[in-house]
């Protein structure tokens, strides 16, 4: 059992939990993830290691409540325990993060939590960091201070214009690349699939390398099932062991979007049933 030592509400439907998991904390590297299962009827769900504290022996996860499992996890409190918590999984993404020059980190929505340790790592390796953090509206933004702290330049966008530039993250990206594409070593874009696809398209137009982190549907997370497979270039890759970070230029975005929708009716049914069951309780 893995104890929740801290819980925080970061934004509407976005929650943070710090979990007591000393073995994983000892090993965690930027870009890696864990898989949890909250109880014995639960699903195995991947979440990025949003932060780790080797001394305290904790792992921080940040999740958006999008379906049954994440919504239910949101009802767990400090002091409660999660049944299974395994990791760190996936390839760490720090190998090519030596000093390379200017790097643009783009975070969409809850992708902020996913990108954070990488941004910090990139900055700590002596790179010049330009961060673009976007969300639908102001109330969904979180960790802006942390992100700013590790950014030499920092830009916010909101779809509705409630804070920063009105529009999508791809706009300021295009503006920057238009002026100085040659000086950018690479971009790293993490967020919803359409957002990553749009950023990659812009970067590719300017011949800039673009890394992305793919949130495919997983089961085991160890390369055993192939649920997470995705076409990159002319190869079928397993996101859990070959990734989750990939060269965005070669990702088959259409396939990814389609594959991520494959259980939609079941997920809807599961969420509705769950809400029915808890009606009159906490919510």
């Amino acid at each position: 059992m893995f104890k929740i030592v801290r819980k925080e509400e970061l934004a509407e439907d976005i929650k943070l939990m710090e979990i007591d998991a000393p073995l994983i904390a000892k090993k965690a590297k930027p870009g890696q993830f864990i898989i949890f299962r909250s109880h014995d009827k639960g699903e195995r769900i991947p979440l990025t290691i949003a932060d780790f504290d080797r001394k305290r022996g904790t792992i921080t996860i940040v999740f958006q409540e999008v379906g049954k499992t994440t919504e239910e996890l949101g009802t767990f409190d400090e002091g409660d325990s999660i049944l299974d918590f395994v990791g760190p999984l996936g390839k760490p993404s720090d190998h090519d993060r030596k000093e390379e020059g200017k790097v643009i980190c783009i975070a969409g929505g809850v992708g902020t939590a996913v990108i954070f340790t990488e941004l910090r790592n990139i900055k700590e390796h002596g790179n010049y960091t330009i961060t673009i953090q976007g969300s639908r509206c102001k109330s969904l933004l979180f960790w802006t201070d942390r992100m700013k702290h590790f950014s030499d330049e920092y830009i916010i966008t909101t779809d509705d214009g409630s804070l920063g530039i009105k529009g999508f993250v791809s706009q300021p990206l295009e503006d920057i690349l238009k002026k100085q594409a040659e000086s950018i070593a690479y971009i790293l874009a993490i967020g919803p699939v359409p957002m990553m696809a749009a950023c990659v398209k812009v970067a590719k137009n300017y011949n800039v390398k673009a890394y992305v982190s793919l949130n495919t549907i997983m089961v085991d997370g160890t390369g055993m099932c192939g649920s997470c497979r995705i076409t990159v270039g002319d190869k079928s890759m397993f996101a859990c062991v070959d990734g989750p970070e990939f060269d965005g230029w070669y990702v088959d975005w259409k396939e990814l979007a389609q594959r991520n929708n494959r259980y939609l009716p079941a997920e809807k049914q599961s969420l509705e049933r769950y809400r029915e069951l808890v009606k009159g309780k906490n919510r």
């Binding site: 499992t69 099932c225 079941a266």
Partner: peptide, 27 residues
Amino acid sequence: IGVYSANEFLTRNNLMRGYLFPEYDTP
């Protein structure tokens, strides 16, 4: 979509008890 490896298909069904969905969460 709809093409499974036997490992995914059987793991969803056996280890995760997909056949008992939605009582169990894995579809």
